[in-house]
């Protein structure tokens, strides 16, 4: 290969490289030591890069949309008919669930302040740690704020909004990320703990006492005690239980991993829910396992 050689002494090269590396270390330390999760560099890079990415993504979506809608119209009537049928079923299910919740006086303890759900498209997934974070095409211009919760289009919890939030895009930290955690219940026996991820497709309960039996297949839902995620949203199912000294280690497979991350829903309230000082544990939890669609998506007008 043809290469260019410059007349720079090795000492000078090393000094320059060390200086650049030192600058990078300062950048890292602003994030770690100063707990500054919104650096100037991040904002600048995000502001420059995300419009290109969103533009490209929208172009690809537009082309595929045209293909889907104009070239693949075959069987569209049948699909429309099926959707109509599903819609009617959902309305009926919605009615039944509302009735069930009212019967349990469940809404008195949780006062939702819902305004709207923002639909967002995923524009980028962390290539190195795909189960750590994703970027969505909604940013501060869409009033996205830190700690807003994110669901997938099936209503399963996906994660929450974290910095950087730029004008055009924002980052979603997935519940499978090893940073952070989520307050959760085992639905069957109301056993509560902190569910944490480890950048794999399994999340784990830590420090869960072993006096109550947990079985594989049990449903796991949010508890609301972390004051970020609203309670009773489905998270996943228990896939493994290991007994340890005094505690038990419980592995949970999140539901959102069963679908590809394309479209997400951000709950846009400043305060998605208000919960009493001591989160109530109802005697009978609504069995979301029967119908995994969370009620917060359904009774939007209450």
């Amino acid at each position: 290969m043809k290469t260019i050689t410059e007349n720079i002494s090795t000492e000078r090269k090393i000094v320059i490289v060390v200086t650049v590396l030192f600058l990078n270390l300062i950048l890292v330390s602003t994030g770690v030591v100063l707990q500054n999760d919104k650096t100037l560099f991040q904002s600048v890079v995000g502001f420059v890069v995300s419009p290109f990415q969103i533009g490209f993504q929208k172009s690809v979506d537009f082309i595929s949309h045209q293909f889907r809608h104009y070239l693949f119209l075959k069987n569209s009537f049948e699909r429309y008919y099926d959707l109509e049928k599903k819609y009617t079923e959902l309305i009926y299910q919605n009615y039944l669930l509302k009735k069930k919740i009212k019967d349990q006086d469940f809404l008195d303890s949780i006062k939702f302040k819902r305004t709207q759900f923002i639909k967002a498209d995923v524009i980028s997934i962390d290539v190195n740690f795909p189960l750590s974070s994703v970027f969505i095409d909604k940013g501060s211009k869409d009033k996205i704020k830190k700690d807003m919760i994110v669901l997938n289009n099936k209503g399963d919890i996906v994660g929450k909004i974290v910095e950087p939030i730029t004008f055009f895009s924002s980052r979603v930290r997935l519940i499978t990320c090893s940073v952070g955690g989520i307050g959760a219940y085992i639905e069957s026996d109301k056993l509560e703990g902190l569910l944490t991820g480890n950048n794999s497709n399994i999340c784990s309960f830590k420090y869960l006492i072993e006096n109550r039996m947990v079985t594989v297949g049990d449903m796991v839902i949010t508890s609301g005690t972390d004051r970020i995620f609203p309670p009773y949203i489905p998270i996943g199912r228990v896939v493994n239980v290991e007994q340890e000294t005094l505690t038990q280690k419980i592995d949970v497979e999140p539901f959102f991993l069963k679908n590809s991350l394309k479209q997400l829903i951000v709950i846009s309230n400043d305060q998605a829910f208000i919960i009493d000082d001591q989160p109530p544990i109802p005697e009978k939890l609504p069995m979301v396992s029967q119908n995994r669609t969370p009620h917060i998506l359904q009774d939007n007008n209450q």
Binding site: I26, L27, V28
Partner: peptide, 16 residues
């Protein structure tokens, strides 16, 4: 920006 869990400078350092 895209791949380091909100920690700027990590890949900057390694790529340099």
């Amino acid at each position: 920006y895209f791949c380091s869990a909100n920690l700027m400078g990590v890949f900057g350092f390694s790529r340099v």
